[in-house]
Simulated assay, not measured.
Amino acid sequence: MTLLAANSQILYPEIYQRNQQQQVWNNGSCLFWPKNYGFPGSGWCDRKWKKKISRRRDCRVEALWPDLSRPSTIEMEPINDSDQLDQILAAAQELSRPVIIDWMAAWCRKCIYLKPKLEKLAAEFYAKGIKFYYVDVNKVPQALVKRGNISKMPTIQLWKDGEMKEEVIGGHKAWLVTEEVRQMIQKNL
């Protein structure tokens, strides 16, 4: 036994033709719009469409040509002993600029996660002459760790005029720590 299904194009041709005229294809999906809404020449949608195109073009330009006038990250320099720390602090004191020291350990998961974020922050403050350093507490003498008065890791300290002024103990989320470090730097500039 054969059944014939009703074809909507044959039964309701006027509805089918009206829907075909009102279809708008957008990213591969078919949308039905009321008459004169969203078609070229309808006014409001044309302005919206042009705005959308220009926004996409701006994004593409930024994506293709990054700002090369300043680096996006600057690798932090290691401090290996007390003599090196003294030299760094003396040079910073001559220039009257603060120094940021990240006290971390190679086994500390939060320290490892925070380091690239601090390197981006170092690039942000590079133009102002602020340098970022790190100390791996397992690879340096304990006298250096005691000098920094480190009890928890990661600890980010701001040193100015040869002494530690402020610190952020980074046991919480990395974006919060970087924001606190940014505020600490801006307060001590």
Results as ranks from 00 to 15, higher is better:
W25G: 10
Q183D: 07
P116V: 04
V177G: 03
W103R: 01
A122R: 01
V181F: 06
H172W: 10
N19V: 13
G28T: 01
Q22D: 13
I185M: 08
L114W: 02
A122V: 06
N36S: 11
G129F: 07
L89E: 00
D58M: 10
R60K: 11
Y16I: 11
P71V: 07
R147W: 08
K110L: 10
I74E: 00
V61Q: 09
R109H: 09
C45S: 15
A90E: 15
T178G: 02
G38M: 03
M184W: 01
L31T: 13
D102I: 01
M164W: 00
D86W: 07
S54A: 13
S82Y: 06
E167S: 14
R47S: 12
P40L: 06
A106N: 14
W25T: 13
G38T: 06
S29N: 11
V168Y: 03
Y37V: 14
N80S: 10
L95W: 00
V140T: 09
P116D: 02
R70P: 00
A91V: 05
Q157A: 15
V177Y: 02
L189D: 04
L176D: 14
E94N: 10
Y16C: 12
S29H: 10
E14W: 03
K131F: 05
L64F: 07
I156F: 03
Y113M: 14
S42H: 00
N188Q: 05
M76L: 14
P116Q: 09
A91G: 06
A92M: 03
W175P: 00
L11F: 11
A92P: 03
R55W: 08
Y12H: 14
E94F: 05
Q9H: 13
V24W: 00
Q183C: 06
I101F: 04
P141R: 03
N7M: 06
Q20N: 09
I156H: 00
S96G: 07
N19Y: 13
L68S: 11
D81L: 04
P98R: 01
N149Y: 02
I53R: 11
E94T: 11
T2Q: 14
C59R: 13
S69A: 05
N80C: 07
G129V: 04
